[in-house]
């Protein structure tokens, strides 16, 4: 059964439609990449999946005992965060916020979970360091650890490699692949990087004038996929 199903989803701002009648489903263990040009509605779709914005029409359904606030979200960095005094530990622990409900403070279970996720992403040694003094790749790993505290099953990543150098980008992609393949975490990634999408994803959702949704293999055969590769592909 699918974790998230979008039925006839129509998206937009203030009555202006960007996307119409979108249908797709994300099943456990899948790796879905959402690609498309700027303004094609990628961020709007993401905000709708997170429940931050209501759709103009259609529905987002969750299944298999999965709740909307159990998505582990990795947002893009904001200017506020660049000079924010916070330790790695504080940030990762804040991923457990959703589990606390009405409890104001974190308990031993949340601390254990935060420690576990620090170790999972090899951040234990950095836990006392200040976030703003870390490198871009380390910062993304911290935010990923925080997202893992918020979810056991589904990660939603918003342009996770933007602003990273090629070496760090490749490392982060491998890390996400490991979480998906070895630990069975479902991944939804919004990305500009079509080459990486085709390389790592199991399914592709291409937004734009023509909308494509299907497996990676069928995307490579589709007009949308081929056109994208003719224009932007560099032979990878």
């Amino acid at each position: 059964m699918a974790l998230i199903t979008c039925q006839d989803l129509t998206l937009g701002y203030e009555g202006r439609e960007i996307l119409e009648k979108l249908n797709f489903a994300v099943r456990p263990g899948e790796y879905l990449c959402i690609v498309g040009e700027n303004g094609s509605g990628k961020s709007t779709l993401m905000r709708t999946l997170l429940g931050l914005q209501p759709p103009l029409g259609g529905r987002v359904l969750t299944g298999d005992g999965f709740a909307r606030n159990e998505i582990g979200y990795l947002p893009q960095q904001t200017p506020v965060q660049r000079d924010f005094p916070a330790s790695v530990w504080e940030i990762v622990l804040s991923g457990c916020q959703g589990r606390c409900g009405r409890r104001p403070f974190y308990g031993p279970a949340e601390r254990a979970l935060a420690r576990e996720n620090l170790a999972r992403l090899e951040l234990t040694d950095l836990s006392r360091r200040c976030y703003r003094e870390l490198s871009g790749g380390q910062q993304q790993r911290v935010l990923l650890a925080r997202a893992l505290c918020a979810t056991r099953r589904l990660l939603l990543l918003d342009e996770p490699v933007s602003g990273l150098d090629p070496h760090v980008t490749a490392e982060l992609y491998r890390l996400i692949e490991r979480l998906n393949r070895q630990e069975g975490i479902t991944v939804i990634m919004v990305s500009h990087d079509i080459a990486a999408a085709v390389r790592y994803a199991s399914h592709i959702l291409h937004l734009g004038e023509t909308v494509f949704y299907g497996t990676r293999e069928s995307y490579l055969q589709s007009p949308a996929g081929r056109r994208f590769f003719m224009e932007g592909g560099n032979g990878q």
Binding site: L52, Y73, Q81, A86, S94, G95, G98, R146
Partner: peptide, 13 residues
Amino acid sequence: FAVTFDESFARSA
């Protein structure tokens, strides 16, 4: 802390 550091994440959780 959660809301100040990252409002979108906090709201999504």
